[in-house]
Design a protein around this nucleic acid. Structure first.
Lengths: 347, 347
DNA sequence: TAAATTAGGTTAATCGTTTAACTAAGTTTA
DNA sequence: TAAACTTAGTTAAACGATTAACCTAATTTA
């Protein structure tokens, strides 16, 4: 059967306390004894029982990871990448992640995730727009909470956030630098802080370039930033504005919809209209032309979240730290300087 | 602090053993006592400690869920849906799922998932094409194994498999029934049992319809069934065969690539060439025309796997049961009877 | 040289459950 | 009526680790 600490103690001819102290690298143990014990551990392929550990320490070694249903099933690997990063770091830190999904629309009487009720996690990571009812429910348990890519105004929680304002600025500036002046913005679910911030970045960039903000160039009334809504929004945008030369879509999914619509209307990208997205999730998706976008380091966000959680759990850091993750412009063929193609356009 | 079984015992004025017996619905306890205890449990919002339970029972209540990296990050929500189903059923059965990914190409010295090494799971579910090295490593631990949508020839494991042969037949027959005779097959990673079976179904359907199998109509040499490979394969297929009227792609991802290629060449779907896929994962993906496909009940597969695991763990069932999941034709606009469009074609 | 400190351990209590073995009272059986 | 069962619980050991408190011998300090 699986070896226990007793087997190791017997084999190394020490007490079980010594074995435990060796495992925890206690300085009271001599190098010699450490070697002896470690040898026994290796030979018997011993791993401490999580249950026994959890029982005595009051810690489970588990972290809860909450995602809404539709975020988890989104076709772009955005949240799944964040999870993957979290998983990597969890291995490093000897933690386990319990992933669960919650409905994005909470019905009354909806229960909290089981791992919270059963106290099976030491902390919880909330990813994306998690319903406020769930968050409020969680507050009652004194578990450390970390948000990723979302925020709810409250005290004493941590967050890993994307630098959306600067990202929105960079994306828009990239178009401005290429000579574009009439630049549309395609958004959805504009009350979402991340998307709202990207919109703010857009407006800031225009302002600092001395271009007047024109609400007619902005379509933000769709409810969810998905492809089909990017498609619909573009139709609306083009109906009112015939002379747009650039579009900044609030994420790549919508940008795909934008491009689909432009293609249907035989509008050339980027010759007639340049398009830039945000997230950098569609690179594998085989779009023509390849989409310029703002890269969001998704794996890193998951990694940072678990790192932070690990620190909070060992009390190394307060439980209300905010981390802002920078983004980076990725130039591809969907945006080209207006100057570079002017000959093309005028022919 | 969190209430323990002692608090319940005190409150209900019984011994802790009685509380435990009530929780496990032991018949030795009178209805009256049961009520008293359950009332106390409700009032204190008591949930048994998983660690304590795990320690004494030797069971963790966790199930490992292994997926390759690239499967998890696939843009279509195929494996994520299976996971979701598993998660649902796990809640039902009071189990937790520990999800981990492994590289699809295993380097030498690659370790097994940590939850196996540390004996933190009672059983393991392997989803999709998991490297054989990992499977072999797992065999050494006597954990029940359940494969989903993949199989490796060995003894004493269970599997939830898609009825790919019949699915392949139905898809092909659907085209045959519409009057198609020159039907292409687009596949990839043909050594994968699931894909190979779909190919077998294709051949069977042709045979039973009296249509001779023509290898020139089948492109199966790509290494991975993704969009770009569907695109490439279609180019090859069309170069050799000008008069094809239908294409069966081994999955929806490849089918998208097929359609992209046809569109580029201004070949109308379904008027010139009808296209059918497999998996039914792209319905949200906003493709024109909507893709006919074989529906694979993904949630159900996850559910079945956890149900089966739960039975195996409670020894209700042997650990080598195979479940074949039926699939169903989903007719959409990418396939239409050749007869219906013949006028169109001859004009 | 006696007291204090240090090094390197060991002993034993503890965490929260489960469950085999026991008990005491009431009910059947022969 | 005594022996044998039932019923409805209780007692106590066990699971595998952690860690405060203790111990002993060697070394340092005053």
């Amino acid at each position: 059967m699986t070896p226990t600490i007793k087997d190791i103690a017997k084999k190394a001819d020490v007490s079980i306390a010594t074995v435990s102290l060796v495992i925890h690298n206690n300085k009271r143990i001599s190098e010699e004894t450490k070697k002896k014990v470690n040898k026994a551990i290796k030979e018997l392929n011993y791993h401490p029982s999580g249950s026994a550990r959890g029982l005595v320490s009051g810690k489970t070694g588990n972290i809860g990871f909450i995602l809404t249903n539709d975020h988890f099933l989104r076709s772009e690997p955005f949240y799944t990448r964040i999870f993957l990063g979290a998983e990597f770091e969890a291995r490093e830190k000897q933690l386990y992640i319990l992933l669960t999904t919650v409905p994005s629309e909470v019905k009354k009487g909806e229960k909290l995730p089981r791992f919270v009720l059963e106290r099976n996690v030491d902390g919880v990571i909330l990813v994306g727009k998690v319903p406020v009812e769930i968050v409020n429910g969680l507050k009652k348990y004194d578990l450390p909470l970390i948000f990723i890519d979302y925020e709810i105004p409250m005290e004493g929680y941590s967050a890993i956030l994307i630098d959306n304002v600067n990202g929105g600025m960079s994306a828009t500036q990239h178009l401005i630098n290429a000579g574009h002046k009439k630049i549309g913005f395609i958004g959805a679910d504009i009350s979402h802080p991340s998307i709202n911030d990207r919109f703010t970045g857009y407006k800031k960039a225009l302002k600092s370039a001395g271009i007047e903000f024109n609400p007619d160039l902005c379509i933000t009334d769709e409810n969810y930033p998905a492809r089909e809504n990017g498609y619909k929004a573009t139709k609306k945008l083009l109906k009112k504005n015939k002379d747009i030369t650039g579009i900044f879509a609030c994420n790549d999914a919508m940008a795909i919809g934008v491009m689909q619509c432009l293609k249907e209307k035989s509008i050339r990208i980027p010759e007639d209209i340049a398009v830039i997205g945000f997230d950098n999730v569609e690179s594998d998706l085989f779009i023509e032309p390849p989409l310029s976008t703002m890269n969001v380091p998704k794996l890193e966000m998951g990694i940072e979240a678990v790192k932070l959680m690990s620190q909070i759990l060992s009390k190394k850091v307060s439980s209300s730290k905010k981390i802002l993750i920078p983004v980076e412009l990725v130039k591809r063929q969907s945006t080209v300087a207006i100057n570079n193609v002017s000959a093309d356009k005028n022919k």
